[in-house]
Design a protein around this nucleic acid. Sequence first.
DNA 1: CACTTTCTATGACAGTTGTTATAGAAAAGA
DNA 2: TCTTTTCTATAACAACTGTCATAGAAAGTG
Lengths: 190, 190
Amino acid sequence: MSPRHNDARQRVVAATAEMLARHGLNATSIREMAKRADAPLGSTYHHFPGGKQQVVVEAVKFAGAQVRARLEHHLQAGAKAGLAGFLSMWRDVLLRSDFRLGCPVMAVAVEEPIDAVAEEALAAAAAVFADWEGLLANALTNEGHEPESAAKLATLIVASVEGAIVLCRAQRSIAPFDKVAERIEWAAGL
Amino acid sequence: MSPRHNDARQRVVAATAEMLARHGLNATSIREMAKRADAPLGSTYHHFPGGKQQVVVEAVKFAGAQVRARLEHHLQAGAKAGLAGFLSMWRDVLLRSDFRLGCPVMAVAVEEPIDAVAEEALAAAAAVFADWEGLLANALTNEGHEPESAAKLATLIVASVEGAIVLCRAQRSIAPFDKVAERIEWAAGL
DNA sequence: CACTTTCTATGACAGTTGTTATAGAAAAGA
DNA sequence: TCTTTTCTATAACAACTGTCATAGAAAGTG
C-alpha cells in the first residue's frame, strides 16, 4: 500500500512550505522542518527517501494546490471575482505575517544551489506558476478576452503579484501591493 | 582618509551581487565571495568590519546604483524609451545567464535569516526599489501622467519585472518576460 | 633608513548543513 | 501469539557556515 495517511508527514510538508516562504530554500533545513512540524527527525528519510529535494518538491506542489483550490473557488463567481480573490489571498498572507511570509514557489525559483541545479524543484515551481496562469487565462477567455490576450494578462497578473510581494516584504508595507492591485484590476476590466 | 581605491574590495562587492542574484542570500558565503572575486579571504574582515551584513548591503547598493545609472541614461530619451531600456536590461540579464541570474535586490528581500532579521539589508533593498520607482514615476509625470497615477504605474512596472524574472527562471524561458513587457508597455502608452 | 598604516595568510572556534547507518520501538497482520 | 512492516531515536560523517585572533607581509611616509 502507498504510505498510509500520516499526520506527521503532512505536517512536515506544510511546515516546509512556510519555511520556504519565510526564510528561503537554503535556510530551510531538515532539522528545522521537523522541529517546526513537531515531527520526529529520525523518520524524515523514511517518509522522504529523496531527501530535502523531495520535501521541497512536495511543499511546492502542496502550496500550489492550496492556492489553486482557493482560486478555483473564487473563479466560480467569474473572472473578476477570481482575480479579486487571488489578490486578497496574497494580501492576507502579507498582512497576517507582518510582511515576513512570501511565496514558497518563488523561493525555489530564485535560489540555485551552489554545487548543482535543483531541476526537479524548479520544474515543480514552473508547473505551479503555469497552473495558476492557466486558470486565470481560461476564466478571462470565458469572459470574452481573446485567448492570447488573456494568456498575456494572466501572466502579468501572476508576475506582478509575485513582484508586489517582494516589494512589500522589502518595504514592510502593503502600499506596493495595493498600487499594483488597483492597476491590475483596472487592466483586467478592459 | 577613507579606504583607498582598492580593486579587490570592489571586486568582492560585485561578486557578491552576482552570487545574490544567482544563489540567494543564504548560499552566498564569505569564502565563496572572496574566491569568485579572486580576492584574499584573509582581508575580508579588514575591508568589511561589519561582516557579511556589510558586504551584502554594499552589494545591494552597488547593484541598485548600476541599474539606476543605466535607467537614468535611457530616460534622457523620454519615459517610453526609459521603460524600454529598463525592460531590455533585465531581459539581457536573463538571456545572457541562461535564466540563472535574477535580481540581487530581490534576494535579500525574500530570505529572512533564521535567527534574526537583517534589518539593514532589507532597508537597503527597499531603498533601491523605491529609487527605481521614483525615477520611473518622475519620468511618467513629466510625460503628462497624473503624479499618483504615474507612481502606481511605476510600482507596477518594477513589481511585474521582478515577478517576470521569477517566472522566467522557473520556466527557463523568456516567454513570461515578453508577455509581461508587452502588456506593460501597452499600459504605459495610455 | 626607520616607522606607521594598510593589507594578507593561516588556523582555529563553535555551530550548522545533508545524509547515512544502526538499533530499537510501535503497529499491524497472521 | 509470532512475524512482518512501518516508524523512530541516536549517533556519526564530512563539509560548510560566520567570525575572530595572531602573525606577518606589503606599502606608504618621515
